[in-house]
Amino acid sequence: MKKLKYIPILAAAFVILSCNNDDYLTYGVDSRIQFGPAPKYLYSTSYQSVDTLKAYTFVYENASVVQDTVFFDIYTMGRVSDQDRPFKLKQVQVEGVDNCVAGVHYKAFDDPTVIKHYVIKAGDTHESIPIVFLRDASLKQKIYTLKIEVEANEYFGLGETATLWRKVNVADRLIKPNSWTTSVETYYLGKYSYVKHSWMVAQTGFRWDDEFLAPIVASYAEISYWKAKFKELLAKYNSNPNNPNVPLTDENGVLVSF
């Protein structure tokens, strides 16, 4: 009877060994919808999560610009339809950040000016969908986050769990580009700060936003060039006592370095 205690252990061992991968959703007859990378990267495994998080700032735009658009790619699974098929988006609240407010920071998904874009056209399996952001005064003070998810409706079920959402950080001030990844921070540009970012823009005259930084990060030679260039520019900047904030120190009291 004492040996009965080994039965649960034996059972547990079998349970562990009997684990296997969950089956992926396959392209069957069910229509499903999910986000994905740009079409040119759709079949490249290393790009599957490249557009998961985007950053947008109005700071480079003229004051007359009161709204601007960020696009995401969305794809269907299942059979192609010969009629237009609307899909639904919803905002999901994110804990610990300032969440965007519909009608204040972005156009609500049921706004008549945007809802017409949330449709998969007849005979198509892909759409580039617009999220329209509004230049509210509060964006100058804080970075706001909009997390969106697709919702099931009469036309579409949900696709792969990991690809049901996208997130945008939006502001009207310099904002950390998503391409400034942990790897970029570790090996090339160092820790991000608002002061460092502003100084980079002032020194080079370039927008150091995602559009500018992403192709640079993709090239070892070019990101290495900029690392070396910023080291040189910073040494020259710090050697001139007439420059403000010398040696260059960020908003956290940390000396800026590359």
């Binding site: 090239s219 070892y220 030679a221 070019e222 290495s224 060039y225 070396a228 260039k229 080291k231 040189e232 040494a235």
Partner: peptide, 15 residues
Amino acid sequence: YTMSSNAGRFGAASP
């Protein structure tokens, strides 16, 4: 550095 992909352009001057 020719041991990785590059665009045939020289980097920043070495200090």
